[in-house]
Amino acid sequence: MKKQSVFERIAAAPYVAWSAMFIIGPLLFVVFFAFTDANGSFTLDNILSLPSYSHTFGISLGFSLIATTICLLIGYPLAYCMSRMSERARNVLTILMMLPMWISLLIRTYSLMALLDNGGLVNGFLTGIGLPKVTFIGTEGAVILGMIYDFLPYMVLPIYTSMTKLDRRYLEAASDLGCNSVQTLFKVVLPLTMPGVISGVTMVFVPSISTFYISQKLGGGVFDLLGDTIERQFQLADTYYIGAAISLVMMILILISLAIMNKFSDGGEDIIV
């Protein structure tokens, strides 16, 4: 690799300092606390107590996998269609996709809550046309819906970006070699947009598995996801050793799943995480 110039080093300095303070430092703290007890001495108890949280790990993983899969199933075709539209239509749709990202995640979740509440808009509509009320809040569906609602743009945009970067000549070459449009999609478009898919999956899966407010607001406190558990451990100062241990294991889980996904992209091109 080429040697960094003085300018490059100076330019990078603010970020290096930033990440040392706010990324590397906290990470070390997490690792430190995960292996210490209240007296500050080394222990494996925190880690060893984790199997009692296996249910939490299970439903967190389940919910975020379902949400990610649905986001992918909605997002990929959407991105594909967007990339083939006229430039005007594309730009409008991109803005529409971005618009919710400018609003705080928390506010979006609250507004979804206002819609789904027992006295909310949806139930108001249902009773209005003479149908019985449906309880949404506190169901698995509501939590997963919340994840999809909050994170869908993060799936669409990276895939859309890789779609627009896709050279039309590859599509022509596929057609030339005998592919109809479905075959072109699976043999050429999908593999070549894999980096976008990986980015999208990552950007939906990671916040989904670590969220706590979505499950608190839309799950009505029924579901104890990883994020909720970690939050509780840290709020009750006594047990943040456990919280650190859960965080650590969760991070490792995420890293493992990222590594598996990267295998799919065949060591492929630049991945925008």
Binding site: D167, R169, Y170, E172, A173, A174, D176, V188, P191, L192, M194, D266, G268, E269
Partner: peptide, 9 residues
């Protein structure tokens, strides 16, 4: 094709 358009994957 001009500049070949070989599939990079």
């Amino acid at each position: 094709f001009q500049r070949y358009a070989l599939f990079p994957h």
